[in-house]
Nucleic acid binder design. Structure first.
Lengths: 344, 344
DNA sequence: AAAATATGCGCAAACGTTTGCGCATATTTC
DNA sequence: GAAATATGCGCAAACGTTTGCGCATATTTT
């Protein structure tokens, strides 16, 4: 029943030396004789001594903690990013405090507040879907707490960020469909104030224009990117006088929803309608047919965001201009869009 | 360039009152005049004062942090459990520190160590696949740090835990197949030292026995529960002189792998072979045919584990006997196992 | 042999809180 | 009008570390 945790003071008393010596011995500090170091570490192990990181954090003005705010932690994308963040952080001896905004800017505000008084040394944020302004990050900047955004950012705010080249993703997805001979390509997109959907759409339009094709407003469906939105979208597209021959969906979920509607109606991908999703979700290999999709390198994004944060933490005083890291997406071609066979 | 964070001392100085008064004013403590409370909170807001939780934690001997160790944070199951944990914890004013063991007992050991000196007030653990003994949790118990396991536990250790009734899950899955008229049912299972796979298998065997059917060793395949294991398993089953007419897989992933092999071979579920998975992964609604599966109520498990932990934290001194919470799984019947049509 | 340097350690302050105790002043009680 | 009580606040210690400074003793240099 060893209730009280042993402290550095206990060690000092039992060894009849000062606490400063114990502290230095344990931290491998400069000039402590090997003999004392050994005595100290021996007793430390015996008593199962664990340094109190709150105390040391208080004294050193550091907490060894990073804060993360994500819209939600489940789902493929964010859980993988967080995996990357945790891996990178713990390698550097940092802990990770995780908060979910639940796609709600009110929560998000509370989250950054709560992270700040947890004394985190840096904050990683992916904006909630309902975030349309950045005032709640002012305080963070005032306090000089390093701040890095990832994936979702807001237009017109100059911030440190690691993002995917979503435009390139949209472009490559669409171009792939074009190369497969599809010519009337629809697009499912999401809230346009979010960089990710806006850029995917831009890439889509760029590719169309490159092929001299019109951008038809009735082929661009705005939704919430869930499965149901995909199903609804596909149903709507099928009612058009001139339905599309392919769909590039800004999310795998709506692509899957669309796919289900196709199957219900006895239509087939890629023969009747080509289909490309976005995110390369786990299930994209499991649908029938398997779903062509854009991979976002989620875990890498987490690691990159964390190293960027570390960089900024080190350069602390020098206020460099905000930095952007842009990750290139990859196209994973699968059956749902392969009408002509695998390209070379 | 507001470098230094305002502290309680700064407030006290600017208001010409003592820091104790400020502290009490801010914490709504007993006997401070309303007037002073107002003055204090006003200035606090003006200076953007944030309490330093390290200092307060140090003084109060509390950190307001919970530690979580999971095998990995990505994937449907754990990310949802963690979501539940985070939700419950933050509602109670707690932060969550997350560690990944990467299915490696060595990491796991390091994780609990690191959580302990982060001064977490309680720890939630789901064991790594390679964990076969529990010595590394002795220290936690010695320190009287409340400890709750979830989902994965080891046989023969009396610990606080929130688990799924995996036996019931296995039983219901198998019984469902039996009710659909399948009689030669194979089973994919995982490492047997893990309660979850062992129990699912037990449920499977119980159901067979209830129907007076033999438990055939060559129909029980031990693997790692990934997609590939499922594909390999199904291939192997198909080489049997008398192949099964159904498979109950201990994981949706191997079920999906099996399904792919069926499709390749031109076999169909549920007509040729019935298929039931486990975990009700997101993709189980997206395969063709959709996959019947057992839902584990992941998020609920996270919330339950957290409340159990809180209970134990409160009863601290009284050492009650370890408690178990057992969650009941749900069967989600989908096309992959529906040979006779939906039961009443 | 005295002076300079190196080595090993202790003292005490500091980090920002919380809290038991005590001390004034203001209010109530007889 | 004196004594008892209530109200509002301050003092100072404590939580467990880290660290600048200084002081001995041991070692090297002149």
């Amino acid at each position: 029943m060893a209730k009280k945790r042993a402290s550095i003071t206990d060690l000092a008393q039992q060894l009849n030396i000062s606490i400063s010596t114990v502290s230095r011995a344990l931290s491998g500090h400069s000039a402590i004789s090997e003999a004392t170091v050994k005595r100290v570490t021996a007793l430390a192990k015996e008593l199962g001594y664990q340094p109190n990181s709150l105390a040391s954090g208080l004294r050193k003005g550091r907490s060894n903690m990073l804060g993360v705010v994500v819209p939600h932690i489940d789902g493929n994308f964010f859980s993988q990013v967080v995996k990357g963040i945790e891996a990178a952080a713990s390698k550097a001896g940092y802990h990770v405090l995780i908060c979910q905004s639940n796609e709600d800017v009110v929560h998000e505000r509370a989250n950054v507040e709560t992270l700040m008084n947890a004394q985190v040394e840096g904050i990683l944020v992916s904006l909630s879907r309902t975030t349309r302004e950045m005032r709640h990050f002012e305080k963070v900047r005032k306090r000089d707490i390093p701040l890095v955004f990832f994936d979702r950012i807001l237009d017109g705010f100059d911030v440190n960020a690691v993002v995917l080249d979503d435009r390139a993703g949209g472009y490559r997805a669409t171009k792939h469909l074009l190369e497969q001979g599809y010519r009337r390509i629809a697009h499912f997109t999401g809230p346009q104030h979010l960089n990710i959907y806006k850029l995917r759409r831009q890439g889509y339009e760029d590719a169309l224009r490159e092929y001299g094709l019109p951008v038809a407003e009735d082929l661009i469906l705005l939704g919430d990117m869930k499965m149901d939105d995909g199903s609804a979208g596909m149903r709507q597209l099928l009612t058009l006088p001139q339905p599309p021959d392919a769909v590039f969906s800004g999310s795998d979920f709506s692509a899957a929803g669309a796919l289900q509607v196709l199957t219900e109606r006895g239509l087939r991908a890629p023969e009747d309608i080509g289909l490309v999703g976005f995110s390369n979700e786990l299930f994209s290999r499991l649908t029938a047919p398997q779903l062509t999709s854009i991979d976002q390198h989620c875990e890498l994004m987490g690691r990159s965001a964390t190293s960027l944060l570390f960089q900024i933490m080190q350069e602390r005083e020098q206020h460099y201009a905000p930095r952007h890291v842009v990750l290139q997406p990859d196209l994973f071609v699968r059956a749902s869009s392969l009408r002509l066979g695998q390209p070379a």
